[in-house]
Simulated scan of single mutants.
Amino acid sequence: LLMLAPVPLLCWEAGVRLAPPAGPAGHQRLSALKKDPGNEAKLKIYALFKQATQGPCNTPKPGMLDFVNKAKWDSWKSLGSLSQEDARQQYCDLVGSLAAAEGGSAQAAAQPAGSGSAYETLLVSTEDDITTIKMNRPTKYNAITTEMYSEIIRALEQAAKDQSVLTVFTGAGDYYCSGNDLTNFTRIPEGGIQQMARDGGELLRKYIKAYIDFPKPLVAVVNGPAVGVSVTVLGLFDLVYATERATFHTPFSLLGQSPEGCSSYTFPKMMGVAKASEVLLFNQKLTAAQACQQGLVTEVFPDSSFQAEVWTRLKAYAKLPPNSLALSKQLIRSVERQKLHEVNDAEVERLVERWLSDECMNAVMGFFQSKAKL
Rank of each mutant, 00 (worst) to 15 (best):
F252Q: 05
M365N: 15
L234G: 09
K329T: 10
V221S: 09
P225F: 12
A113I: 11
W311K: 05
R245G: 01
P62R: 05
L204C: 12
C92K: 04
K319L: 14
G173D: 14
A108K: 10
S370Y: 04
S125D: 13
W73N: 06
S178W: 08
Q290G: 12
A109E: 00
M64D: 08
Y317L: 11
V297N: 05
K216V: 04
G38V: 13
P321V: 15
G171E: 02
G228M: 06
T170F: 03
N283R: 14
L281G: 13
W355P: 01
V227I: 12
Q307G: 11
A172K: 04
K42A: 01
A372V: 04
G114T: 11
R154D: 15
D345S: 15
I193M: 10
E260G: 14
A326P: 01
T312G: 15
A110Q: 01
V231G: 01
N136P: 00
G295P: 02
V165K: 11
G103P: 13
N323T: 15
E151A: 14
L254I: 04
C57P: 02
Y176I: 08
E353H: 03
A32C: 09
L203K: 04
E85M: 06
K285D: 05
T232M: 07
Q195S: 15
A318P: 08
S178Y: 06
V233I: 15
A291R: 00
E157A: 14
Q257E: 08
D86W: 00
E299A: 10
Y207Q: 08
D238I: 12
G191Y: 13
A52D: 03
S263R: 07
D129N: 10
S178T: 11
C292V: 05
N180T: 08
L94P: 03
T266C: 06
D128P: 03
R17L: 04
V233W: 00
S115K: 04
V279P: 00
A210V: 06
D358S: 14
F237M: 15
E336R: 12
F368E: 06
I332M: 12
S150P: 03
P217D: 05
K285F: 03
A100N: 03
V221H: 04
D162C: 07
Y149N: 10
M196E: 11
K161C: 08
G272E: 09
P322F: 03
D199K: 10
A108E: 10
L331E: 13
R333L: 02
A101Q: 04
N344K: 07
M135H: 12
E102V: 08
W12S: 12
P62F: 02
Q330W: 07
D213C: 06
L234H: 08
D303W: 11
K339E: 09
T266I: 11
A372G: 07
V221L: 09
L280Y: 04
I193G: 05
S324P: 01
C92V: 13
A108G: 13
Q338W: 03
S83W: 00
A159M: 13
S357Q: 14
I212V: 14
R333V: 11
Y175T: 13
A197C: 07
Q90D: 03
F282I: 04
V273R: 08
